[in-house]
Design a protein around this nucleic acid. Sequence first.
DNA 1: TTCCGATGGCCAC
DNA 2: TGGCCCTCGGAAC
Length: 269
Amino acid sequence: MPEGNIIHRIARIHRRWLLGRDFTADSPQGRFSEGARHLSGRALVSVDAHGKHLFHHFDGGVRLHIHLGLFGNLKHFRAGAASPSPTCRLRLSSPHATLHLSGPQACELLSPETEAELRARLGEDPLRPDASPSRAFTALRRGRTPLAVALLDQERISGVGNILRAEGLFLARLPPLRPASELRPAGFERLWEALRSLLEDAARDGRIVAPHAPPAPWEIPGRRREDRFSVYDRAGQPCPRCSTPISRRELASRALFFCPRCQKTPAAS
DNA sequence: TTCCGATGGCCAC
DNA sequence: TGGCCCTCGGAAC
């Protein structure tokens, strides 16, 4: 269940282990049988992540686009693969590794033109080396929509989901409900750096961990997932900076978490 | 065993 | 704005 960090992590793993390998493809679930036939027998040429989207290019110019959505899951097996679940949409197998994709929002083959159109609509991705903070700043400030809503708009900035939005705004001490147009350069710089470093750490470690979180390991009894976060999913619990109870509210049908005190003013400065 | 919510996003109204 | 899609882990019985 992915924000951009997971997508980049997957892309890095695939680049390291799978580039140049020949794959056979099938669709145990049957919903991607036609596409799998086109992929089968081809070598993986490149893997790219942009925001929450994955682009795998195979030889012969075959392009696979994957978007995991809310439920999608991509498993890797470097040796003996488990048998695929009945919902496995796409299985890619080589002697070196096997991938099982289930529950994706998108799993499709794209023409070069369609892929270009899709990518042109995506905003700056803080994890991409070609990301332009100044373009992101301009895109984010467009209109009077609340900053917290603008952050989830993948056409402005891509890769940020509901957890990173909450944690990023908290780290940058920005008021989530202020109009995005009021965001000042200093506030944006704090936000961009917060998102970039949260994403980078999470892409490396495989999960989002806020700087205020207690030290790992996370698997010890009694510890809950939300202990990794500063504000996300922590309504009513004390803010790690000022001990004010964390607020939760519904915004555009997504839950928003923030500290009502230290994310108040000095506004978007 | 059942049920519900979730790190997303599309489409119709 | 609401409905819908897709899957699954953990909470609730």
